[in-house]
């Protein structure tokens, strides 16, 4: 169980997150929605432990993230940023192997188990055939899938099978920079990865931010609506994503908000 309690983050005088509290049940898919600047990315950074909140705390199964060792956190929480730019020409396989970092000692070299974890992760995202390619030569959609593969290999438990806690995958606007086809592909991939993890017995917890209402309601069990650093609503997509809520939060008229909503087939 991932819990955030009374999170406040301020950059200078600007309060980016204002007493945000939420809980994410193990094995669920949670979508965070809200206008630009509402604090989505900041919230994800706090949940992933890369940004320490000014007040409040994040706990993972009762343990405070700030007290946990960075590598221990990384073995349980993996992050897929909005876009990943590499400074040097790594191959796809090398990028996937970077996910194994928290599983290895300071001078340890990846062994067969790590290679297998990376290969399985690439296979799960349909990018194993690209493994020898240079990451920088890939298309946007391919890059996104490779970075998701790196995150999966990071969460792979084969070197510590006794750990039964639910791994957490955090994705920051995973479909934002992609064209229509890749949007559909990546959305489907996330759903597929989740159901595969449930079948395998280590259900993946997913927290993602998005602007895509259809994506959120199709994939997520719970959505959280943020506005100006506050949680405005949280619950099932059907309950939260209403004409009223959207027109208030995004400041658009109800007539314009209505067609944006995914049609619910009763």
């Amino acid at each position: 169980m991932l819990r955030a309690l009374d999170i406040t983050v301020a950059f200078g005088a600007k309060c980016v997150l204002d007493r945000v509290s939420l809980r994410v049940a193990p094995g669920t898919l949670v979508g965070i929605l809200g206008p630009n600047g509402s604090g989505k990315t900041t919230l994800l950074r706090v949940l992933a432990g890369t940004l320490a909140p000014h007040t409040g705390q994040v706990t993972l199964d009762g343990q405070s993230l700030s007290r946990l060792d960075r590598r221990a956190v990384a073995r349980r929480v993996a992050v897929v940023p909005q876009d990943t730019h590499l400074a040097f020409d790594y191959t796809v396989m090398e990028v996937a192997l970077m996910g194994r970092y928290p599983h290895l000692g300071p001078f340890e070299v990846e062994g067969p188990a790590d290679l297998a974890a990376a290969a399985d992760a690439l296979k799960a995202t349909g990018t194993l055939n690209l493994s020898e390619r240079a990451y920088q030569t890939l298309s946007g959609g391919e890059k996104q899938r490779v970075v998701i593969a790196a995150a999966l290999s990071q969460l792979d438990r084969r070197s510590a099978p006794e750990d039964r806690s639910s791994p957490l995958l955090v994705l920051d606007e995973p479909t934002a920079a992609l064209d229509l086809r890749y949007q559909v592909e990546v959305a489907a991939l996330i759903g597929r990865l989740h159901s595969a993890s449930v079948t395998a017995g280590t259900p993946l917890t997913v927290v993602l931010s998005t602007h895509d209402l259809h994506f959120a309601s199709a994939v997520c069990h719970t959505v959280i609506l943020l506005s100006e650093g506050r949680v405005v609503a949280q619950g099932s997509p059907a309950d939260v994503l209403t004409v009223d809520a959207l027109s208030t939060v995004y400041g658009i008229s109800p007539e314009l908000a209505a067609p944006l909503l995914p049609r619910v087939h009763a």
Binding site: Y90, M98, Q154
Partner: peptide, 22 residues
Amino acid sequence: VWLARPLNLLSLGADAAATRGV
């Protein structure tokens, strides 16, 4: 010698490296 592997991760950017345990 100690730096070789952290430098690989740092090329992803500071935040991404931190989420991988660096």
